[in-house]
Design a binder for these strands. Structure first.
Length: 468
RNA sequence: GGUCCCAUCGUCUAGCGGUUUAGGACGCCGGCCUCUCACGCCGGUAACAGGGGUUCGAAUCCCCUUGGGAUCACCA
């Protein structure tokens, strides 16, 4: 059995969007699952729209997603000789011919056809002229007029096309460059791609490509056309549906593993399982289990899944990923152990790394500032004795374990007659500046003795300055 | 418009002729837990697009209708 060879072939005319990422992912997963190879090819024959910047953006996105390739990147723009050879081969074998019909004439032909309600197709004027190469001429593929071309698709099943619907499409432009369909086939052929997984917006191209394969006497690859990713209004996902680029989700604090999990689950399923690690995805992914219908991209579910991945991730593993988000807030984490502890108090209450960084703010600030509302509500003279007592108790404590802290609090409660809730909130505001945070014992333990006592004292001063 | 594809809760989906009062997840709504916010736990809401067949029996197979999507370049 020959090994699976898949590929991802984006055209670099913009950032990598989630739909493209999913196509790349399916190809990658299938190759990794089957121990095959995944090849990256950049389809940059359209010089007007291809940019260096887009190419970099694609690499960056794939790199972040952890989708690596075994061969390439190959660039179509550097393979012109190969296309030329194949085009000439097709002309020589009688499968293609030079055509001198002007674009205007073709345009007229099309308009006339439209007007009479007929199919807009090339009328074959030059088909049998036996023209040779000449300036301004294109090369057309001599497509069969009768019969059918069938696409045996792994996800869609058999699709039959009437050859009478197809026409003699251009394979070589008048400037000598190949058109898309020719280039794709030649590339997939020469790169020995045997499994073509791509978006189903390509199904209509496939009969043309199949005919090209046949004319080139090459074996057909296995085709798998995966359904599209739609926006919430069922139309093709685009900018007006919100963020569509892979990088945008990274900026939003989505984990690469979560995006991958979500994208894989969109259109593919493995029973009722929702959460998949990267390894599970590789182990369980099967292109045959991909569904036929298009799916709507749901950022809310992505977030929920992201929360699950954050929870499942070891704090020490998550730390390096959180650092840039802290930096964005002007916060610097110098101590890895401290950061890991911080994360362990935040990972069950954060849906994204952005949220987590915001929640971590008070851990890294030298001087915290009190939120007006929270301070007004909780830092009142009545709690001053409790805070004083707590400071005393904590100063005497050698170890800040949850147990020790709890008993310290209980003592304060007994002394002051206040319920834990009445003490915890003021302490929370004192330590974090806000009324929302992880558990009070947790944050005291992580912050450590000196910070805690300093902040409690500051709160006490605050109360006195206000009441005095 | 032609051609092609698709059709289970709002969304992602399980289901592959009987085990189904159609299951799970997200969302939403209750409740429990509780030092705040979350997490977690428990419960609820909500779907087989419509119509014909085939069959003892259909969400599952066939046909039609409807709805959605894709595509019709010397763009990829």
């Amino acid at each position: 059995m020959t090994s699976i060879r898949t590929r991802f072939a984006p055209s670099p005319s913009g950032y990598l969007h989630v739909g493209g990422a999913r196509t790349a992912l399916f190809n990658w997963l299938y190759a990794r699952h089957s121990g095959g190879s995944f090849i990256l090819r950049i389809e940059d024959t359209d010089k007007a729209r291809s940019t260096e910047e887009s190419i970099r953006a694609i690499f960056e996105a794939l790199d972040w997603l952890g989708i690596d390739w075994d061969e390439g990147p190959f660039y179509q723009s550097r393979r012109m000789e190969i296309y030329r050879e194949h085009i000439e081969r097709l002309v020589r074998s009688g499968h293609a011919y030079y055509c001198t019909c002007s674009p205007e004439k073709i345009q007229q032909m099309r308009e006339r056809a439209m007007a009479t309600g007929a199919k807009p197709r090339y009328d074959g004027t030059c088909r049998e002229k036996g023209l040779g190469p000449q300036p301004g001429a294109v090369v057309r593929f001599k497509a069969p007029y009768t019969g059918t071309t069938v696409l045996e698709d792994v996800v869609k099943g058999n699709i039959v096309f009437q050859n009478s619907e197809l026409d003699d499409f251009v394979i070589c432009r008048s400037d000598g460059t190949p058109t898309y369909n020719l280039a794709v086939v030649v590339d997939d052929l020469t790169m020995e791609i045997n499994t073509v997984i791509r978006g189903d917006d390509h199904v209509m191209n496939t009969p043309k490509q199949i005919q090209l394969y046949k004319a080139l006497q090459a074996p057909l690859p296995v085709f798998a056309h995966v359904p599209m990713v739609l926006g919430n209004d069922r139309s093709r996902l685009s900018k007006r549906h919100g963020a569509t680029s892979v990088t945008a989700y990274r900026e939003m604090g989505i984990l690469a593993d979560a995006l991958i999990n979500y994208l894989a689950r969109l259109g593919w399923s493995h029973g009722d399982q929702e959460f998949f690690t990267r390894q599970e995805l590789i182990a369980k992914f099967d292109i045959k289990a991909v569904g036929k219908s298009a799916g709507i991209f749901d950022p809310v579910k992505l977030q929920a899944l992201n929360a699950d991945h954050i929870k499942a991730c070891e704090p020490s593993q998550l730390a390096p990923q959180l650092v840039p988000f802290l930096a964005r807030l002007g916060l610097e984490a110098r101590d890895d152990q401290y950061l890991a502890k911080v994360i362990s108090t935040l990972n069950t209450r954060s849906k994204t790394l952005v949220e987590m960084a915001e929640g971590a703010r008070f851990y890294f600030l030298e001087e915290i500032t009190f939120d007006e509302k929270a301070a007004g509500k909780f830092l009142k003279p009545a709690v001053a004795p409790a805070l004083e007592s707590l400071i005393q108790k904590l100063e005497q404590l050698e170890e800040f374990s949850e147990k020790a802290l709890e008993s310290a609090f209980i003592q304060v409660m007994e002394e002051t007659g206040l319920k834990l809730g009445k003490i915890a909130q003021p302490v929370r505001v004192a330590l974090t500046g806000t009324s929302v945070s992880p558990g009070i014992f947790e944050i005291i333990e992580v912050l450590g003795k000196s910070r805690v006592i300093r902040r409690l004292k500051k709160a006490l001063e605050f109360i006195r300055s206000r009441s005095g």
